[in-house]
């Protein structure tokens, strides 16, 4: 019966990554926690993963706040190019 719950480290870390986005299912979480019982490496991976998620989120926030614009000159060039095509 427990055979069905046994997963590899590759699968365990896939579930771990998925759950960082709140996308893992209950069954997956159960399998993951059973895996942790026998695997210190994946437990460490998960701990570090939580930390990395915080860093990524901080980065995401900073990125969203930056808006990029094309320069005036670039827009003028683009306008001229468009005019050429219209003719």
């Amino acid at each position: 019966m427990f055979k069905n719950f046994r997963i590899t480290c590759d699968e365990a870390t896939t579930i771990c990554d998925k759950s960082q986005y709140g996308a893992s299912t209950l069954l997956e979480k159960v399998k993951l926690n059973i895996h942790f019982l026998g695997c210190k490496i994946c437990s460490l991976y998960t701990k570090q993963n939580n930390l990395l998620t915080k860093i990524y989120k901080g980065h995401a926030k900073a990125c969203k706040e930056t808006k990029v614009c094309m320069t005036k000159e670039e827009k003028e060039i683009l306008k001229k190019e468009l005019e050429k095509i219209k003719k």
Binding site: T13, T14, D17, K18, Q20, Y21, N49
Partner: peptide
């Protein structure tokens, strides 16, 4: 998508 995310994150972890 989740396989790609998984591979990206394990690579990133190692790189960091």
């Amino acid at each position: 998508l989740w396989v790609i995310i998984h591979r990206a994150r394990t690579q990133l972890r190692k790189c960091m």
